[in-house]
Amino acid sequence: MADKPKLAMYWAASCGGCEIAVVNLHEKILDLDAAFDFFFCPCLLDTKISTIEALPDQEIAVTFFNGAIRTAENEEMARLLRRKSRLLIAFGTCATEGSIPGLANLSTREELLRTVYLDNPTIDNPEGILPLPSSEVAGGTLQLPVFYDRVLPLKQVVTVDYFIPGCPPEAHQIWNVVAAVAAGQPLPPPGSTLGAGQLSVCHECSRRKGEKKIARFYRTSEITPEPDICLLEQGLLCMGIATRDGCGAPCPQANMPCSGCYGPPAGVADQGAAMIAALGSILDPGDCRGKSEAEIAGQLAALLDTIPDYAGTFYKYSLAGSILGGRVKS
């Protein structure tokens, strides 16, 4: 056991789906266990932080770090694991782009705390108590990690060697990476994305693509799409055109539009901006000939009204890692 390379997996601001994705390796998890000393994973194992702290630096061969950086504790663990790991891999889109937790960047810290601890209808908090980094109680001082103003992707806190996107990463892609690392295969230059493709989801989606003109959008509950035709052409807001491939396009094949979980494609800095620029080129507000500016604006507004939630659609997984990173106070 001692001569097996150490594998760690940690969760910061995340949901636990990444761990489930690892369990989804099914029987291959035994192969993983055979190749690595899978010794740290708070979701599955009871290793203590002190054990990690006691390790020599770079003792861990690979750390899969999932989750975004939301609190001081997330950052502290990121720094600790960075120091102790030879390879630190941002695992899953929360770690690579901020993902769903990153949508909190549309609100201020105060707004978030007020909603969660004071305003929600199910809250019973008559004294209006909010979490504080440090509280005096009868038994002494209680400490909580500081809640940051913004959610950050892992690379903004520590140097990340590789990125495995996906919410969660697909099991077969996790296995590709695990197998490559276990076999000691040469890896691409540091900073590269592993376990994903170099193109967009369209590349893997077998639906027939044609020229696109979209007169209105539909929610998935509103229509039953044709089985073989590009979902975007049918008015479903499929993010596949602006999303990295590698997942195998399971969602569009199952009539569900891609929601963008593999993040921006290679070389694209801002997934939402790429999607908006592409949509801006194919939206069809109808016949505008001879119409006044106000009428044309009305037609456009009617078309845009069929998109329910701009930020939550175009930046669902990549807001924190995008160029703006979230709402910018004016």
């Binding site: 193109l199 369209c202 590349h203 020229e211 696109k212 596949g240 070389g267 080129s281």
Partner: peptide
């Protein structure tokens, strides 16, 4: 060509 996924967004623009 090696970066094109064939989504055909550009075809009509």
């Amino acid at each position: 060509a090696d970066k094109c996924s064939g989504c055909r967004i550009c075809n009509g623009v």
